[in-house]
Computed example of a mutant assay.
Amino acid sequence: MTLALLALGALLVASLAYTVACWAAPFTTCSRCKGLGKRTTWLRNERPCQACKSTGRRVRLGRRIHTRASALHQRGTR
């Protein structure tokens, strides 16, 4: 019983920490271009990154979920 409560507490702390991180810094570096805003092709040509639209930053997954849930709540309460 105590091991289950310990695991539940650790999961709660981890999810709370991720929630605070998404609130404080909703953007992260793009995983495709590594934050450079451009990608190299197999011929070594540089092209703008399509995933982040050449900004080098993307919205975190948790922030995207929060935004969609907020929009759904707004549409449902009108």
Rank of each mutant, 00 (worst) to 15 (best):
Q74T: 06
L6G: 01
A10Q: 12
G9Q: 05
T55K: 05
L36F: 12
R58E: 12
R57K: 10
A17H: 05
N45T: 15
T77Q: 12
T40N: 12
S31I: 06
A69V: 05
R78P: 09
I65S: 07
R58A: 09
R58S: 13
L12R: 13
R75A: 10
G56K: 04
R32M: 13
T41I: 09
L6R: 00
K34G: 12
T67P: 00
A7Y: 07
T55S: 14
K53D: 13
L36Y: 11
L12F: 12
S31W: 04
L8M: 01
L3I: 03
K38P: 01
L36W: 09
S15I: 01
Q50C: 09
T77F: 10
S54Y: 03
Y18A: 10
W23Y: 05
A10P: 03
L12V: 11
R63C: 06
K53N: 12
F27W: 13
V59F: 04
L8H: 08
E46I: 12
A25N: 11
R57L: 13
C22H: 01
L43K: 15
K53P: 01
G62M: 07
T55A: 09
K38N: 14
A51K: 08
R68S: 02
C22E: 08
K34L: 14
T40G: 09
A7P: 07
L43A: 15
Y18W: 09
R44D: 15
P26K: 00
A7H: 02
W42R: 15
R60G: 02
L8I: 01
N45H: 15
T28F: 01
K38I: 11
R32Q: 13
R64N: 02
E46Y: 14
H73E: 05
P26R: 01
A21Q: 13
C49Y: 00
S54F: 04
A21F: 12
Q50Y: 10
T29H: 07
T28Y: 02
R44L: 15
C52L: 04
A71M: 03
